[in-house]
Design a protein around this nucleic acid. Structure first.
Length: 419
RNA sequence: GCGGCUGUGGUGAAGUGGUUAACACACUGGAUUGUGGCUCCAGCAUGCGUGGGUUCGAUCCCCACCAGCCGCCCCA
């Protein structure tokens, strides 16, 4: 074995493809019902799109991007997420001209140079949704509802929805300042990790697992207390919509999204048995992103679902569909003359829409019958020298265990009558 | 990027510094005349993640690398 697949990538083998198609089908089903239309953007974009969109100082941009210089000297990057690209496409193709609210979904590969572990790969697949053009919290609610219904349509249970408001450029700095003021005097007693994050991302200190930090955090100001009137009102309305829809949620004041573009609503859907990578869906509102990329101020909300993680949960909960590819007919033949006739009959049956397999290896009848049995085929058609001569076949119903000769021209009709 | 654990055939796995690397499942073939699901028999790793080193000799000892997993970080 000279060359293996790159670290953090996976081959999706034939026996797993059915699971992927199943999940993708559910994605398309629900998006259709909710009026979201599919968009496919390039796998790579100008590096600057992500730097501006996601934020220069985020971990994703600082250390997880697959960036390279192409032969024309441009810096391009394999997309680490699809929101920035969707917004770019929205602007570049003037999709905003179609209607006030533009509803898009995507499904595809994303790339992040991360240390692989269960539920985290370097090439992974996301399904996501973006609703652009409307500021109302009702859109937030609809997007959250869509995410929830999607996961439910797969049969997932034991999911938990957490929501928070991370404020806007007006009020978030106020909170950040308040938090830093509160934490600064206690910083000496905290762990190194917290010390290093104090400047970069003080909101993160709040969910440190170290006991000493945890205690020192008690009584810290919460973002909810610092929201401006507009953000507070937005959040309250969202909550009332969710309640009206019957969606249970937890308020998580420490829920922070790692990408800079999020404003106001942030939410996450988790499945706890997944281990460290327990977030199955994450999203929120990003009212500043379109402008950041050079468009007019345009409010927007969206989310992304990690498909590998969803499939892990489906597997764990035994919710994957049976993907046995059942044969209708297995052809068994003995001898060269029989093989030729077998070819012709196989072709005829397949053209009639049946799933047919024929043994071409020239094995013994017994071996062929074993294969026929294992294949799960409903019928076996056996042709040997006698049948060649009499222009018949032995028609065997493998499920019933019955067998009788049938004229070659009557095979199709026979199958139809028994199916 | 940090810390830890692991790495034997298609799969699950046993094993030892020294002729032929258990066992099970799977797979393939066979058990006299053209037939399946049970049973029985046989075959199936010139090889023990890769590359070095120690040794008379290494799958078992050492080092490096690679990969997977767990935790951190981050995120979906």
């Amino acid at each position: 074995m000279l060359i293996e697949r790159p670290r953090g990538t996976k081959d999706i083998l034939p026996n797993a493809v059915g699971n992927w198609r199943y999940a993708e089908e559910k994605v398309r089903d629900i998006c259709k019902k909710y009026g979201f239309r599919e968009i496919r953007t390039p796998l790579f974009e100008h590096t600057e799109l992500f730097q501006r969109g996601i934020g220069d100082t985020t971990d994703v941009v600082e250390k997880e991007m697959y960036s390279f210089t192409d032969r024309g000297g441009r810096s391009v990057t394999l997309r680490p997420e699809n929101t920035a690209a969707a917004v770019r496409a929205y602007l570049q193709n003037k999709l905003y001209a179609d209607s006030q609210l533009t509803k898009l979904f995507y499904i595809g590969s994303m790339f992040r140079y991360d240390r692989p572990q269960a539920g985290r790969q370097r090439e992974f697949h996301q399904f996501g949704v973006e609703a652009l053009g409307v500021a109302s919290p009702a859109v937030d609610a609809e997007v959250i509802l869509l995410a929830t219904r999607f996961l439910q349509s797969l049969g997932l249970k034991n999911l938990s929805l957490s929501i928070n408001s991370v404020g806007c450029p007006k009020c978030r700095p106020v909170y950040r300042k308040a938090l830093q003021d509160f934490l600064a005097p206690k910083l000496d007693g905290m762990c190194d990790n917290c010390k290093s994050r104090f400047d970069r991302n003080p909101l993160r200190l709040l969910d440190c697992k170290e006991e000493k930090c945890h205690q020192l955090n008690a009584g810290a100001p919460e973002i909810a207390d610092c929201l401006c009137d507009e953000c507070r009102d937005h959040f309250e309305k969202l909550k009332s919509y969710l309640t009206a829809l019957g969606l249970k949620y937890e308020l998580d004041p420490r829920l922070v999204r790692g990408l800079d573009y999020y404003t106001k609503t942030a939410f996450e859907i988790k499945y706890d048995n997944l281990g460290a990578q327990s977030a199955v869906c994450g999203g929120g509102r990003y009212d500043g992103l379109v402008e950041e990329i050079g468009g007019p101020a345009t409010p927007a909300v969206g989310f992304a679902v990690g498909l590998e993680r969803v499939l892990l949960v489906l597997e764990e909960q035994g919710l994957l569909p049976d993907s046995e590819e059942k044969l209708d007919v297995y052809m068994v033949s003995l001898g060269e003359a029989a093989k030729q006739i077998t070819f012709a009959i196989t072709d005829e049956l397949r053209q009639a829409g049946l799933v047919v397999e024929a043994d071409l290896a020239g094995r013994s009848m017994k071996a062929q019958m074993k294969s026929a049995d294992k294949s799960g085929a409903h019928f076996a058609i056996l042709i040997g020298e006698e049948e060649v001569a009499s222009e018949t076949v032995q028609f065997r119903d493998l499920k019933a265990g019955t067998q009788e000769p049938v004229a070659r021209k009557d095979i199709l009709a026979r199958i139809e009558s028994l199916k």
